[in-house]
Design a protein around this nucleic acid. Structure first.
Lengths: 233, 233
DNA sequence: ACAAAATTCAAACAACTGTTTTAAATTGTC
DNA sequence: GACAATTTAAAACAGTTGTTTGAATTTTGT
């Protein structure tokens, strides 16, 4: 028994679409329900009718953007069967695709950025459902390269260094445009960016690993553990 | 002829102080003039009387925070007579001091962060007076290590990588608190952070330099330029 | 000490916010 | 096709925002 009409579902979807783009662009606090409704071609009361609150609409947008395609792409990059360094490159590149224009249903990264700047009532949802899984998987990946446990402090610091480099371009876009106007974030430029961040990060990761292995062999004789199955779920 | 009274100057200063802390904490848009005036012990109309606008007060706060002590400390770190890698470490460490609690007159970094997230009418002032000089000096420094011109694309990308790592902790503070609660940002922890970011970055910079020098010596014979005075102005 | 200028103050203003209300229109079901 | 439920619509609500007003007060220059 579908208690909701099709027309209702369609305005609901239009509201989520419009709100998603605007939330991603201007953040939660700087987006008014009137703007959303105008963009969605709906009445001002539609938000309260369909989502109870403005925050209700926002959490729904967040929840939906968590299941969006790009996030799956990042997960796929993680699950790829390849050497960890290649996986890292794929993850970074996939994640940076968000920078090219306004890909539909690609609000996730930008909403994440806004959440960082100013927490909202839905921050817990964003952190626990959207960020934490990717964060822990990145820690697993980095720890795998470093031959260190995922919750080791050094591992975490390195993961933060990778995330920070990526986030910078999402956050600082308006400032970068004034500081380095030649960066237009074209497709090839984003690729170069991903290559750079990967190489920049791997330089330290490789060095730290080999240094650790050198001291390790000095301490406990030969290394024969080969415990490289560190990128698991 | 001091046309302004002393009492007036004092409320003016109190307003700037209160506004600076609150702008740094919550950003421009999320700070109300009523909150500022209450904190400053001034009347609601004081802001408009002394600064014409809310944005007038904000630009004054920004202008003042640009001349604040911490920024001078960063400049001093840049001007230090030392090998560039040591300078880099000093700059990063000085810049990260902002993370420890709420140091008075240390709004600069946080205001910068808020500007990144959401541009304001004073963004131009922030970028041109506060960010650009440090940015170009960082490019000079990094270019000096890389033996590349400061406006080379690789140089800029590396500078971005360094900035991104630092900014992450400023931005992501609320999220980091949930993701890695053990990071309390104590004095020693901030020191470790600075050490890590420096080492993480230098790993790539050193590697890229030596790689470049190797190919360079292959091309133009012996290297005898020694043009290491790259951190000027 | 006194007039004039500068500053503070309480109150109200207009514009905006998210939300609620009440009635009209649309929809699904018999 | 009629009736009941669901969905839209226009208007107004209560609250907050930055700003202005005009009179009281303090400070300044002589």
């Amino acid at each position: 028994m579908p208690t909701q009409s099709i027309a209702s579902d369609r305005t609901r979807a239009r509201l989520i679409d419009a709100a998603g783009e605007m939330f991603a662009e201007r953040g939660f606090h700087h987006t008014t329900v009137r703007q959303i409704c105008q963009r969605a071609g709906a009445n001002i009361a539609a938000v309260n009718y369909h989502f109870r609150d403005k925050t209700g609409l926002y959490t729904e947008v967040v929840r939906q953007s968590m299941r969006a395609a790009r996030l799956d792409a990042v997960r796929a990059a993680f699950d790829r069967n390849a050497p960890p360094e290649e996986i890292l490159h794929a993850v970074i590149k996939t994640r940076l695709e968000s920078l090219r224009g306004f890909d539909l249903s690609d609000w996730h990264f930008r909403i994440f950025a806004h959440e960082l700047a100013k927490p909202t009532p839905a921050t817990d949802v964003v952190v626990n459902e959207g960020i934490r899984p990717l964060y822990s998987r990145l820690c697993n990946l980095v720890g795998g390269i470093l031959k260190l446990p995922p919750d080791d402090e050094k591992t975490r610091l390195c993961a933060h260094s990778v995330i920070g480099q990526m986030l910078f371009y999402v956050f600082a876009k308006p400032v970068i445009n004034r500081l380095a106007p030649q960066m237009k974030m074209t497709a090839t430029q984003v690729d170069q960016l991903a290559d750079h961040i990967t190489e920049f990060s791997l330089a330290y990761l490789r060095q730290a690993k080999s240094k650790r292995q050198r001291t390790k062999t000095k301490v406990d004789g030969k290394r024969h553990d080969r415990s490289s199955k560190t990128n698991a779920r």
